[in-house]
Amino acid sequence: MPKVYMISDHHFGHKHIIDFESRPFTDAEEMTETMIERWNAVVGKEDRVIHLGDFSFLNMEKTRSIVSRLNGSKMLIMGNHDRGRSRAWWLEAGFQEVSEHGIIYNGFFLLSHEPMYMNKHMPYVNIHGHIHGQKYEGKQYINVCVEHWDYTPISFDTIKAMVVPNEEQ
């Protein structure tokens, strides 16, 4: 049965992110190849990945090349660095679905690029990216930036297990 994975903030082609976020790569090429390998090590051809933004800083040809090498069908929720390009651009780059805004997923999870305001009375868990190595406190926020997950997509089942006790799943 196909699985669903989530991840954000690859910043493909952004060499300065290595220094900004202390990523363990010598250059953008090593970063790209390592992140593609880690994606494909867990995501199968039939699986689905929801990318929560800031995918690539590269041109169409190079971005399309990376997308085509990644296993699974891919949805993009556009991040602040993706919004300079149209939905059509990202679809042409190889994403099967593109959303300019956050979405409600599985009835209980608010998927967004930037963390959304949540209070303890809101019935959602916000799965987000954008803040890289930082983390919000509490079970209402799950940061899926690559820095938190060893540059590897995290399964939605793992995310659910973090916030929903077994008897409620």
Rank of each mutant, 00 (worst) to 15 (best):
K62S: 14
G53C: 02
E92Y: 01
A93V: 04
M78Y: 03
S99N: 15
K120V: 13
G72M: 08
N59T: 02
F108C: 08
E97F: 03
E100F: 10
N80Y: 00
G107Q: 15
I104C: 05
S99H: 15
G102S: 10
F108Q: 12
G84S: 06
I66D: 05
I66V: 14
A88W: 07
N80T: 12
A88C: 02
N106K: 11
G84V: 02
S73I: 11
M75F: 00
S99E: 12
G84Q: 02
A93W: 01
E97L: 03
K62W: 06
L76A: 07
Q96K: 14
R85L: 10
T63C: 05
L91R: 11
E61K: 00
W89D: 07
H81L: 00
P115R: 01
Q96R: 15
H121I: 09
I104T: 13
S86L: 05
M75Y: 01
Y117A: 13
N59E: 11
A88Y: 01
L111S: 13
L111V: 13
G79I: 08
V98L: 08
S73P: 00
L91D: 00
I77H: 06
H101T: 15
K74F: 02
N71E: 04
H113A: 01
D54C: 04
K62T: 13
R69K: 13
L111A: 09
S68Y: 12
G107E: 15
H121K: 08
N59C: 08
